[in-house]
Amino acid sequence: MYIASVIVTVCANIISVIGLALLTGYTGMFSLGHAGFMAIGAYGAVLLNRYYAVPYFLALISGGVMAAFVSVIIGYPTLRNKLRGDYFAICMLGFGTVVRLILNNLNNPVINGALGLPGIPKLTSLWSALFIMAILVYFMWNFVNSQYGKNCVAVQQQEVAAEMMGVSLVKTKLLSLVISAFYCGVAGGVLGFWLQYIAPASFSDTRSNDFLATLVTGGTNSITGPFLAAILLTTMLEYLRFLVNWRLVVYGLLYILVMRFRPEGIMGYKEFSLKKTILFFKEFPQNMGKLKGKWVGFWESRNRN
């Protein structure tokens, strides 16, 4: 079923992107290596299931935990050094590449090198994917609106002041990284058990770029922005497959333009609000007057109480 396939892919991408939204959109750290965490989660979950008969949900969680664990190993020394933001991004880029290269070169029967793992049982269903996605988005929504989330934003906005007001930079950044790695790991497992085949090439830089493009579109300080952007971009990509390389041409332009004109992202600092949307259509005639070049109504300012 083609539609189901699109929906499951969308769900997996939402999970990864929401995880990365915490790291990038809230804490303000960029990563181009999270496909690596996805790979770890996918391989971990599939292998646990294959060799130790670990059931589906537990395998997914274990895959996520493995990704999270690796993120601590790579993240702690990096962040403890107070590595500057751009160094961190570069380090993660290197990490993603290293994971892929290692998987590519492990030519034993378990990992199977570049050929990847075929014959994975189809344990992900449309409903399980939707369910996992909904739960994880709900958790993230709570998290970013909690004290933890506010600390993340403070670090992103004014690192020096945040630290002097008592926010531990290492802990806050590491927690964001670990959670984002966990989310990507779970997404990898969901995808692996749906596609029934994973290979190192499934977790290439292009995928990390897909995530970053989604986030850049979705904007910082927002969960609904990246959520909608993930749906939009993933479905678009599914139907525009023939544009494989052109899409990356567009991504490139997107990064340049957004960074130049609207670095907070196309939908940054806003949350989508259903209430406001309904209100907008109810008061559509009146609003038309106010619409002169502005977006009114759909987007509720983040700064409400």
Binding site: F30, L32, D86, A89, N209, L212, V216, L248, V249, Y251, G252, L253, L254, Y255, I256, M259, R260
Partner: peptide, 11 residues
């Protein structure tokens, strides 16, 4: 700036 530079490269 770095993300923009990556954009140029990808483009």
């Amino acid at each position: 700036l770095m993300i923009s530079a990556m954009g140029v490269n990808i483009f």
